[in-house]
Design a protein around this nucleic acid. Structure first.
Lengths: 157, 157
DNA sequence: TATTGTTATACTCTATAACTATA
DNA sequence: TATAGTTATAGAGTATAACAATA
């Protein structure tokens, strides 16, 4: 072993497998949490065809009607190149529309369609139920502090 | 808008873009944190050819020498099918070895090689520096609570 | 019948480089 | 020259189905 562990290291003849040093790595638990969350998110969204990234895109368009894809991408840390097919898919489904910008022929002003508004409202309802389920053992005060800690990590990027 | 927001919604003529309801979604901040962490992790591991998943695999082999791929996959929530190329790559690099299991001709007993031990020790050093950097604004007590909260989320999966 | 390891495949998310048309 | 949108491509991570060998 790389380093003597204080933690119980169970012989590997069973399903009692130790995670070793991973126990103390925040990044490991972040990845694991996201994995668990993503699985339930997918189930919660069944039938909508919506994924986490698509919901976040529609949420930001809803909160900032008329913004363009570049602004949208920067707000969500999504590369412009990747925004194309993401927004394009939402347009093909009639959930988002691109309008011309009077002063700038390069950019499009993004808006949700009425169908998009309805879809986003439905997604929000499902995401709320999903979050309540995943955070069943976490109080609302703890959730607020959890988010605040995560935001501090994001601020390092 | 789907729902009246109390938060400031800035007109989209600038880079002051509101995240709207996303602000209150734990899953959104988890994904965002992981994204920021992954970028720095990659920089921290430069030259090693190691990625988060590979480090976690080697860490668990190190903590449970002789376990097989199925146990390893279950411990890390990695599908058996995906373990093949992951462990295979580490074998090709001489960091992991598969030994025959006396009582079971189906399974392999996984061990780190001396090179693997050295690589893992180096990875642990780099991961620790990486975590210290990313959690610079988070105290050790807060980090412990953060991990504990994340573990509670994982327990829902 | 169940399990180990495996192959093949596909989808999501992310990343980079290079192009066009406008500004 | 800088920016908005685009195309093409690649890599990492995850997921499922199906197979052979063994238990």
């Amino acid at each position: 072993m790389v380093q003597t562990e204080n933690q119980t290291v169970v012989p590997a003849n069973d399903e009692a497998i130790s995670l070793g040093r991973l126990n103390d790595f925040t990044g490991f638990w972040l990845r694991r949490s996201i994995n668990v969350m993503a699985t339930d998110f997918g189930e919660a969204m069944q039938g909508t065809g919506m994924r986490p990234t698509l919901v976040s895109i529609m949420a930001v368009i809803d909160a900032n009607p008329g913004l363009n894809q570049g602004q949208l991408g920067r707000a969500l840390s999504i590369q412009r190149a990747n925004m194309v097919s993401l927004v394009g898919g939402l347009m093909d489904r009639g959930l988002v529309e691109r309008r011309d910008v009077p002063g700038d022929k390069r950019a499009f002003a993004l808006h949700l369609t009425p169908d998009g508004e309805a879809m986003l409202a439905e997604c929000f309802r499902r995401v709320e139920a999903h979050e309540e389920k995943m955070l069943a053992e976490i109080s609302s005060g703890e959730k607020a502090r959890l988010i605040e800690l995560l935001q501090r990590i994001c601020a390092e990027g």
